[in-house]
Amino acid sequence: MNEIEKNLLKEVAELDSIPVGAYNIRSNGAPLMRNSTENIDIVPKTDKPGIDIFIKAGTKGESVHIPVIISQSGLKDLVYNDFHIGEDCDITIIAGCGIHSCGDQETAHDGIHTFYLGKRAKLRYVEKHYAEGEGRGKRVMNPTTVVHLEEGAHMEMETTQIAGIDDTIRKTEGTLNENATLIVKEKIMTTGNQFASTDFDVDLNGEGSSTDVVSRSVARDSSRQEFTSRINGNAPCAGHSECDAIIMDDACVLASPQLTANDVDAALIHEAAIGKIAGDQLIKLMTLGLTEEQAEQQIVSGFLR
């Protein structure tokens, strides 16, 4: 692995070296390194690019790292990763994609991740998207996450896109059975002429199921963002979605929340707020000795923490 690749790995998976436990590192469209453990089996797909990850029922406290790094400009990578998580598991999966592009051609990664969580399984899924490089070619990432939660399963998804990605369409779909919970925390920042679209579709099918989808974003320069969420309450359930955006410069943010209640006991809430940084916030930090630019930076980095 060269320095560029090492740096990408650090940015997206916070890895300085080869991770402990199960991992699969994909580099420039091909598997680079893979390790299965007693409880976690990583198997390459035979019909299409990607892997199946099987986690034995009852596995607790283990983690899986599956970073993707692309340093070859012009590459278009498509990968299907399926996660089969057994009943009563309690595990962490760290995914992420880093692109370093110094060429003039478009470089893209489309990752389609499907999660099957067994009954009472608990998962923390962390996903970071990052791109860098001097090239004029667009850096594109289109992650799709499909989540199936069995009775009592609990998934927390933290997804972050902070820098460098010119174009992204992020889709997340969830189907929840009885007493299942899906929590999503999304953080996005766009700059320059970047475009980010994020789309959530959650079906609350089981009694007692619940979801909380929270998106915080900052749109700077001439960038554009679109937030769409659809929560369908098909049973006695609880759904909450929140889109909170800071808009700066000449940016544009569109929020389209949608709630559908198909059950009289479906409790659904949406909150959306788009606005510039409040003048009072800037003034408060300036009275502490920060310049306006420093104050702005503090507010944005706190907001996206």
């Binding site: 915080r216 009072d280 916030q281 408060k284 920060l290 503090q298 507010i299 706190g302 907001f303």
Partner: peptide, 17 residues
């Protein structure tokens, strides 16, 4: 002033400089 995301510790740190 209220801030989403900034914490009490952040504000104290900035105050102390």
């Amino acid at each position: 002033v209220r801030f989403k995301g900034l914490r009490v510790g952040d504000l104290l740190k900035l105050s102390m400089g």
